[in-house]
């Protein structure tokens, strides 16, 4: 790695496969929060999001020696694993018992204390509305509007066409707007 230029995720993965422990720390810092944030938004549960993130990262470590550079983006691959793990988790919950911890829970106290009540209300409102969406719509909206992935990238993550992504995000956004329509003033957006 040359000074001043950050190595790509690909390069870090190769370094990791060659035994570089610092590469693991760098990849975790880059990709971990994105994986965790996405899982949390999609699942609505911190403990489950942590489990999914840890499992996804383990799969990343294990695939490192076989990773083909330039074939796919590491972040796209990781998003895909996260989404599949979320789907598997929800499928298991529907087939068996539902984890009592799977109820959306508040942020940790230290973070909440630093936020204003209105920011908190907005966060909860968005999360609550997201949880009302069908699973695939929720995934597409989170990837598009919070993770800011392009439609082709989302298509790769979700293994669907770009047109299907556009349809999912459009329908998801309409459903979110409808769910939040009556809360404009409450959330501090006024009537304008």
């Amino acid at each position: 790695m040359t000074p001043g230029s950050a190595p790509s995720d690909d390069a870090l993965l190769v370094l990791f496969a060659n035994g570089d422990g610092q590469a693991a720390a760098e990849l975790t810092a880059r990709l971990g929060p994105r994986a965790f944030g996405t899982a949390f938004r999609v699942l609505g549960n911190r403990a489950e999001a942590e489990d999914v993130t840890q499992e996804a990262m383990v799969r990343l470590w294990r695939i490192a020696p076989d990773w083909e550079q330039g074939k796919a983006k590491v972040s796209t691959w990781l998003y895909r694993v996260v989404m599949n793990l979320c789907i598997d988790l929800k499928r298991r919950q529907r087939g068996g018992h539902v984890d009592l911890d799977a109820v959306p829970e508040p942020e940790d106290p230290a973070r909440s204390a630093a936020e204003t009540l209105q920011e908190r209300a907005r966060w909860d409102a968005l999360q609550g509305a997201l949880m009302q969406l069908p699973e695939r719509q929720r995934q597409a909206v989170v990837l598009r509007h919070i993770e800011e992935l392009s439609n082709p990238e989302i298509a790769g993550v979700m293994d669907i066409s770009v047109e299907a992504v556009e349809s999912l995000t459009a329908r998801g956004k309409r459903a979110l707007a409808k769910a939040l329509a009556g809360r404009r003033e409450e959330l501090g957006y006024g009537n304008g």
Partner: peptide, 14 residues
């Protein structure tokens, strides 16, 4: 409204 909420969600990335 949604765009504002999304923007805030991005800023407050966990």
């Amino acid at each position: 409204d949604l765009d504002g909420l999304f923007a805030q969600a991005r800023e407050e990335r966990l």
